[in-house]
């Protein structure tokens, strides 16, 4: 069965502990299919809910209603332990990179590999190879505190892709990148999709077509996700 991620009547409202925003609907009745082998771009203004949608797709949040379906399975309804296992197949690039400040660049990239299999030598080799593909190999031994914003994003992208995930969600992955590095990441995301993975990228960059080869473009507006004609 080809890899596919889908939303069915997906809705999300801020939870009760979210202060003044509690209960406010952010995403409403979203029906969308993200097929494997395609790069899907989700755009929209700031605060439209792009990050929340990506977090829902990556299994980091549970929807208020509706469901996320991965390869025909309603993963958003699964118990925590099952969702944990499913999440192993997903790679995420956060908007705020979320690198671990007390680890080196290479150790940050190795993080998804550690609970799986192999040993330090394999983790190291995989991490270095992925960093090299993003032209960040020389950063490997550095502490992440010394990196620029663009370098941090490349490290975060390497971490998301290091384990060859079946589902990749990338939230503004090139916000601080120059065009060369953005194109390098765009090529890598394309290659990831070409091997059958689902790739969903959120960006509000107007020049996104300069670095990313998009198969499907969706726009999030007022909580609804619609295709861009």
């Amino acid at each position: 069965m080809p890899t596919v991620l889908a939303c069915r009547h997906l809705a999300y409202a801020y939870p009760n502990h979210a202060g003044p925003s509690a209960g406010t609907p952010l995403l409403q009745d979203i029906d969308a299919v993200f097929p494997g082998g395609q790069v899907v771009l989700v755009s929209g203004r700031s605060g439209a809910g792009k990050s929340t949608l990506l977090h829902l797709l990556a299994g980091l949040l549970r929807p208020s209603s509706g469901e996320i379906v991965a390869d025909g399975q309603p993963v958003s309804r699964w118990l925590t332990a099952h969702r944990d296992r499913w999440r192993r197949r997903a790679g995420i690039v956060f908007q705020q990179d979320h690198l671990v400040s007390d680890l080196t660049v290479l150790e940050n990239v190795m993080l998804p590999l550690i609970p799986r299999s192999g040993g330090p030598r394999q983790w190291r080799a995989c991490g270095l190879a992925m960093l090299a593909r993003l032209d960040a190999g020389d950063l490997a031994p550095q502490p992440v505190a010394t990196l620029s914003g663009g370098q941090r994003q490349r490290v975060a992208a390497a971490r998301a892709l290091v384990d060859a995930p079946d589902y990749v969600v990338a939230d503004e992955p090139t916000a601080h990148q120059d065009l060369d590095n953005a194109r390098r990441l765009g090529r890598l995301l394309r290659q990831t999709a070409d091997r059958g993975a689902v790739v969903v990228v959120a960006a509000h960059d107007r020049h996104v077509d300069e670095w990313l080869d998009v198969d499907q473009h969706l726009i999030l507006d007022n909580g609804y996700l619609q295709p861009v004609p």
Binding site: A81, D84, R88, V100, L111, P112, P115, R116
Partner: peptide, 19 residues
């Protein structure tokens, strides 16, 4: 926050408790 990040990166609850 660290635990949340590790879970987001594919660590299971069991992996985290074992660590």
């Amino acid at each position: 926050a660290r635990v949340g990040l590790f879970k987001a990166l594919g660590w299971t609850s069991r992996d985290i408790v074992a660590l």
